[in-house]
Computed example of a mutant assay.
Amino acid sequence: MRKILCFLVILLGIGLLIRTEILGIPIKTTLKVYRDGYVFVNQTIIPLEVIVNTTLLGAPKFLLVLDEGGLPLGYRLNNSLLIVYCGDADRVIVSYYTANITSKEGALWRLSLNFTLINVEIILPKGATLVYSDPLPLKIQALNESLVLFYSESPLTIEYVLEINLNETTGTAGEKEEKPVGGENILQNPYLIIGTLFLVGLAALTLILVKNRRKDEFKFLTEEEKYILEFLRNRKRAFLSEIVKATDLPKTTLWRKIKKLEEMGYLRTTKTPHGLLIEYKHPF
């Protein structure tokens, strides 16, 4: 008698387990397709029990499981099987991104939905052209330059091609064509020619004045400072310790001269983990 009672308890437990963990079939599935092949999946499920199992359409990224009020629900993911702990939720909204239901061959994209679903809505990328659909959609709408396809059920397969952006592919050529036009406008405008020549002349005059000033400044440098500049001009850069050895000057004296040359624009100093690095700058 005790064995029979235990057997009945086990059967009752199995029955409760089967009752509380049932397969949840979405009452609506929306697929928003992006140009790179990723698909945003949004499914609404009515939970008949406190625990619902549903199969995901592909490997999920950024998976969210919410109730009708936007509150998160507990879940467990076992490969493609999603186990949701619904509690008192009246609706379960599952959303995620996946790249497993699209493929590309040349310019042709294909979306294959090999699952049994009802009320399927597919939003194609902007500018996409539908070239094949099996079965035919119940309805097609245009929404913000995108085609929206409605199906009563799946499995289904669609194929589409993306619009080629001519501005992106020929942008360089377009720029090359604009340059001669701009050049003709400048040549035809004498004021632009005069202004351009004035700016070029002003830049040349400034360069000459700077060179002359540099030459005058160079006359007043000491022999030690000239040697430091010559040393760095040949080396391009050197650490302070290397310049100390090359000049045989006290470190404080050398540092004072380097700061003077830096303020005059001949040198640039940089602190590094290996010490102070001194770089030679072209004086003009």
Rank of each mutant, 00 (worst) to 15 (best):
L267I: 00
V210H: 15
G58S: 03
P60S: 04
F218M: 08
Y266Q: 00
T98A: 02
L232K: 01
I118Y: 12
E263Y: 12
F239L: 01
E145Y: 02
N53Y: 11
F218N: 07
V120H: 04
Y38D: 09
T116M: 15
I51N: 04
S112E: 11
F284V: 12
G37Y: 04
I83M: 09
L254A: 05
S112N: 10
E223Q: 11
E145P: 00
E105N: 11
V84M: 00
I194H: 09
T54E: 03
L202Y: 14
P26A: 02
S152V: 10
I14T: 06
G182M: 14
L199N: 11
P283Y: 08
I45C: 02
E223Y: 10
I140Y: 08
V52F: 03
D216V: 06
G171L: 09
G265Q: 06
V94N: 00
G183H: 15
Q188R: 08
E121I: 07
G182N: 15
L63E: 05
I164M: 08
G182W: 14
R35M: 08
P137A: 03
Y266N: 00
V244R: 10
N119F: 05
S103Q: 05
I164K: 05
D90Q: 15
T172A: 15
R237I: 08
G37I: 02
T253L: 07
N78V: 13
I46V: 11
K257Q: 12
G58M: 02
S95Y: 02
L12H: 10
T157G: 03
T252W: 13
L197N: 09
S112F: 07
S146K: 02
C6P: 04
P125Y: 01
